[in-house]
Design a protein around this nucleic acid. Structure first.
Lengths: 259, 259
DNA sequence: CGTCAATTTGATTTGCCTCAAATTTCGTGG
DNA sequence: CCACGAAATTTGAGGCAAATCAAATTGACG
């Protein structure tokens, strides 16, 4: 296990060498996420070719580095190939709020299209790889490929839908349920990517989880302990194992039953 | 002032006659919201013509009626022409969560594109009028009109951005600040539509505001009273007047300063 | 004018936050 | 490889903001 966390921002030196071979081990899919997303569309070879041309070379982002910051002009959307990010926004009053934890296969920067400027900051929580997709070129391509256009709309719409899911968590759940829902959400997303849903790595701190869920870090920790004591999960540092998936899910369901 | 609220759902009878002429008084803009949205694009006459063909006849939705419900297949997006809606989702556990209060010029149903089925329920809070935009036809048109396509992407992206704004409110603010932010948000949206921002009508109940903000109705009421006692707003039933706009805004800013 | 729902206000409880300390984990250098 | 220091996490005690319970008041509509 090489080094994993890093606070110095945007100027990695020796760490780069150390971790560069590490991430090379992770290359599983032979192509970028955007193309993967489009595989079910039945595009022909020519169309797929256009898609490939669009995607710039993969880019590596080390733990603690920003891929983009609030205020940056939108040039490219970024699809996470490997690793984990956090997206956070800073309010006028200076408060940080994490709005998402994008993982493999998920797009970042969609909210920037509205005014061509990034609202959020994208910070790599672990050494990661992204595919950058120049947005202007993507839009050109979308006009030519209606099925791809439709898929892109689904993607944007899906982002709205998942934000609504989070709003429901924030608005209706107690601390215990919020944490349970958070773990279930991660488990489900892992499973959707063919990874085992029971074992979750959690590259983010308790404080970051709490920020995301509208809780304090101590409360998050207490709820992890409670879920552990109730036999629903097992914890070993940041490695979390879901011991009773249906139990967790039932907890969330009955919890939001009345209010 | 004719009747304003109604609980009987989807079977209005005499009310229809009473209120039908009432909403006819409100016709201010001569065309649909979609076209208005596209005015700054500099489309030529032919393009505008295509746009007009797309939009089905305006549809009236009476207070208490649903325009669509969760589970309905997505056929059309709907732009609010006049009136006010609430969009709410129901969790598996049966809890209702309001995710938005769309008003004039705002689109509903964007989150349904992701899987062609509405997640949310759209309920008219007052007698309203919408323009329905068949989504399949809209996508066809977008391929032909790149500027319109871009505008549509901005619209979707803007929905994501505004959801993030709400998440920040839910995650970081106290009850008082949530209510203040809610009123400011309404005021700003009114102003963006050329209406006076100081006078807000509030077609939703305290309970609905509380649901939206993650508070109980009693708390919402208390915070209205507090803002009133502090001279920031004046209340007269559901008619709310902003007496000190900058004061309200400063309250929100300093409030989220540290956490 | 009477009924019922919505809102306001008050009293009390509670869940989460705050403050504080102990413990574990992790990165670094010996 | 081990030991050290810093940061993250866990756990405890007490306080506070918002929820809950309850009652009075206002307002809407037949």
């Amino acid at each position: 296990m090489a080094a994993r966390r890093c606070r110095i921002d945007d100027r990695m030196t020796l760490r780069m060498a150390v971790t560069s071979f590490e991430s090379s081990l992770r290359q599983r899919c032979s192509n970028c996420s955007l193309r993967e997303i489009c595989l079910p569309l039945g595009l022909d070879a020519e169309e797929l070719g256009k898609l490939d041309q669009l995607v710039k070379r993969r880019r590596r982002v080390f733990a603690g580095q920003h891929l983009f910051r609030a205020g940056d002009p939108l040039q490219s959307l970024a699809a996470v190939r490997t690793g984990f990010f956090k997206i956070y926004e800073v309010s006028a009053g200076g408060h940080e709020q994490i709005t998402a934890f994008p993982m493999e296969g998920e797009l970042m920067g969609l909210d920037a299209i509205s005014n061509d400027i990034h609202r959020g900051n994208a910070l790599a929580l672990e050494d990661s790889e992204v595919c950058e997709i120049p947005f202007a070129k993507l839009e050109d391509l979308l006009s030519d490929l209606p099925r791809l256009q439709h898929q892109f709309h689904k993607l944007l719409s899906g982002a709205i839908a998942s934000d609504h899911g989070l709003m429901m968590v924030l608005g209706t759940m107690t601390a215990e349920l919020k944490v349970a829902a958070f773990l279930l959400n991660l488990a489900d997303r892992l499973e959707a990517r063919g990874q085992p849903r029971a074992t979750i790595h959690l590259p983010m701190s308790r404080e970051e989880i709490g920020n995301y869920l509208g809780l304090k870090l101590e409360t998050v920790s207490r709820m992890f302990s409670k879920l552990r004591d109730d036999g629903l999960i097992a914890t070993e540092g940041r490695k979390t194992e879901i011991r009773n998936y249906t139990g967790l899910r039932n907890l969330c369901l009955q919890g939001s039953a009345r209010a």
